[in-house]
């Protein structure tokens, strides 16, 4: 009793730095953002920074952000799920290698990787030079939403692959054998056993791709060339170019609400999905 009590105290002490970090690094800044977002330059309370989302340019940026994030997430999911299946069934040695290959890009700074795409996709970039040499039509997607989606998928795909792969390798092989044993064919096994049991991984994968895609400004800046204005870019500009911290903070608060709503929707879909798949 006393021993476990001591242990608990000890654990509390060791959790101290993390709690302090959460407090100073997350909760306090959130409070500051809320303060700026709900006041004007003079410090008086106002909702104008929040309502500003309804202005045409802001609403358009938000809509584009939601759309591109959704498309990227779907593409990542479509790529990652079959990949998870392949990785799950491959032999152990190859499995380690394949996972390594997909994790490898994460070791490099994502800004660098995005910049690399900028160079590759440029009008006179490597890809187009190669296409020209082969006499093929040129790829003209730099500074378009397509390039931004490409960047998002490239940067965030590992975050979709890992949780799905993790969920899939946890599926006991005897469950799959049991399904075959009970008469299920390949499609039925996939639909009724593997897919529903991968849902936790799919949900965290969606979360980990959708949220950063929704809020990114670096990818859209580099691959959109200022022509693809996402909500992240607008917020960034308010903080840097316009020095309007209040508006930036207000729009950030709106974004936060959008993210919370999307998460709640995913969660809801997840539960219903789990029930309906059966």
């Amino acid at each position: 009793m006393t021993n476990s009590g001591k242990n608990r105290n000890l654990k509390r002490i060791f959790s101290g730095p993390f709690l302090a970090f959460i407090l100073c690094g997350t909760l306090v800044p959130m409070g500051v953002i809320a303060y700026y977002g709900l006041t004007d330059r003079s410090g008086a309370f106002t909702l104008s920074n929040i309502v500003a989302i309804a202005t045409r340019s802001h609403a358009q940026a938000l809509g584009l952000s939601l759309g591109l994030a959704l498309i990227s997430t779907i593409i990542c999911l479509l790529l990652a799920f079959p990949l998870g299946l392949i990785l799950k069934d491959s032999k152990l040695g190859r499995k380690g290698f394949m996972v390594f290959v997909f994790i490898l890009p994460m070791w490099m700074n994502f800004l660098l990787r995005t910049m690399a795409w900028q160079v590759l996709l440029e009008r006179n970039g490597i890809i187009n030079l190669a296409l020209k040499a082969l006499g093929l039509p040129l790829l003209d997607i730099i500074n378009t939403p397509a390039a931004v989606v490409l960047g998002m998928v490239y940067d965030y795909l590992p975050f979709m692959v890992l949780p799905i792969y993790n969920a899939m390798i946890k599926i006991d092989n005897s469950l799959i054998e049991a399904a075959y044993d009970l008469g299920a064919g390949k499609t039925a096994v996939l639909r009724k056993v593997i897919l529903p049991l991968s849902v936790p991984g799919i949900v965290s994968g969606i979360t980990m791709v959708f949220v950063p895609s929704l809020t990114t400004f670096a990818i859209s800046t580099m691959l959109g060339g200022g022509k693809v204005n996402l909500i992240g870019n607008i917020i960034e500009q308010e903080f840097t170019v316009s020095s309007n911290w209040n508006l930036g903070a207000g729009l950030s608060l709106v974004m936060m609400v959008f993210i919370i709503i999307s998460m709640a929707l995913i969660e809801k879909f997840d539960r219903e999905g789990e029930a309906s798949v059966i």
Binding site: D172, S174, L175, E177, A178, E274
Partner: peptide, 9 residues
Amino acid sequence: FQKYALFPH
């Protein structure tokens, strides 16, 4: 099966 292999979902 040895470990029952009931579908947990």
